[in-house]
Design a binder for these strands. Structure first.
Lengths: 149, 149
DNA sequence: TTGATTGCAAAATATTTGCACGTCA
DNA sequence: TGACGTGCAAATATTTTGCAATCAA
């Protein structure tokens, strides 16, 4: 399922939530930044150009709402702030490659983890609902930069 | 490599760090709580009985130091506070099963991820240094509690 | 002795909340 | 119109930092 602006507005309607200019402009920020892993502050700065009076609290509240509606997914890269990207619930999962040097986040698609999840579920008696896999290391640019020194 | 109290003190010595009563008592808290995933506050509370005058800032500074020395590993379960456990650097990795209901954290040992890591490294050109895998779901107790309702 | 370490209080950071006002449906 | 949503400021929560006093080596 793709996240179009219209489909997201529909989800808001279904939940009996109002469509306000603030919510619109935040949704647009994600549409336009496709695969960005945006923090609340990032979103706030992006939307201020279109809506200078928006409050940071509104951004937080909207992000929380969108995460509840499964439009966005809240994630944590260990840098002390939450980040959001379009939720992948119905598609297959992708994972994150976090560069320890430049802190950029790349993505990686994978299916192998499904197998592992089944093994873990069987051995642990856990009912697994979601998983989160992150690789930390050096991206290609930072590896090359390191070699040049 | 096991984390004994003495081996940890040695690591402090090697780094020219002093062995203070505060550091000792924090190390002991981890030795005695083996596989606990302790937050700074947890450690602070554990340690206050033996050393009532210890400051929370000292706990934070000590945890940071021990993580730098690879005695502890800092981790994040998405509940807004960092947690620490003995570092596993030289052994094989274990992963975490986080219960979404009771928030308890169980562990799971695995080797399958080594394969996946190699695949990711090859495809992404990332030099992978570490990984972090968490499963979220319902532990056995919470599943049973859910069925009873 | 002396530089590292500590406790305290204040600051910094990220996020949440109370409330009066504004607005979407 | 009226409940929902917003902006602001204040409150929380976690972690960090400045500094004078203290302590381990």
């Amino acid at each position: 399922m793709q996240h179009t602006f219209d489909s997201m507005c529909e989800k808001l309607h279904e939940g009996a939530y109002k469509i306000t200019p603030q919510r619109e402009v935040i949704l647009r920020a994600f549409v336009e930044h496709g695969r960005g892993h945006l923090s609340a502050e990032d979103v706030y700065n992006l939307v201020k150009s279109r809506n200078p009076d928006i409050g940071l609290a509104t951004v937080y509240r909207t992000l929380e709402l969108l995460a509840e509606l499964d439009i966005l997914q809240k994630m944590d890269f260990g840098d002390g702030r939450s980040r959001y990207e379009f939720s992948d619930k119905e598609e297959h999962h992708h994972h994150h490659l976090v560069c320890l040097q430049c802190h950029r986040v790349a993505e990686f698609d994978d299916d192998l983890l499904e197998t592992l999840e089944a093994v873990v579920a069987r051995k642990s008696k856990f009912k697994i609902i979601d998983h989160d896999l992150k690789f930390y290391g050096l991206c290609r640019d930072c590896q090359e930069a390191g070699q040049r020194e």
